[in-house]
């Protein structure tokens, strides 16, 4: 899938949760949404693209979620399975 589109979608999710004043809750919101609604191949591509430094324009809240809730968004079990 086009990574630009995944970034656009992830940023839109972040735009909703950015209104949450508690940063931890906001990060949970983003990571939970990605986990509950995105097909694994989409999550994998986003994670791998961030790891490869290819996600230009990705919202800071999404980056925080991918960094601080990585196991929730892309569990090792899923990655290996």
């Amino acid at each position: 899938m086009k990574i630009e589109k995944l970034v656009m979608m992830a940023n839109a999710i972040a735009a909703f949760f950015e209104a949450e004043p508690d940063r931890e809750i906001a990060i949970d919101g983003v990571s939970s949404h990605l986990r509950r609604f995105w097909d694994p191949r989409m999550r994998r591509q986003l994670v791998e693209s961030v790891d490869a430094g290819q996600c230009e324009g990705l919202n800071a809240l999404v980056r925080a979620a991918l960094s601080e809730r990585r196991e929730q968004i892309w569990p090792s079990a899923t990655a290996s399975g």
Binding site: M1, K2, K5, F37, W38, D39
Partner: peptide, 18 residues
């Protein structure tokens, strides 16, 4: 246990050959 593709995601995945 994992969510699947939504319709627009199906289109994107089709164009991505998966």
């Amino acid at each position: 246990p994992e969510p699947g593709l939504r319709i627009p995601n199906m289109f994107d995945a089709a164009l991505d050959d998966s």
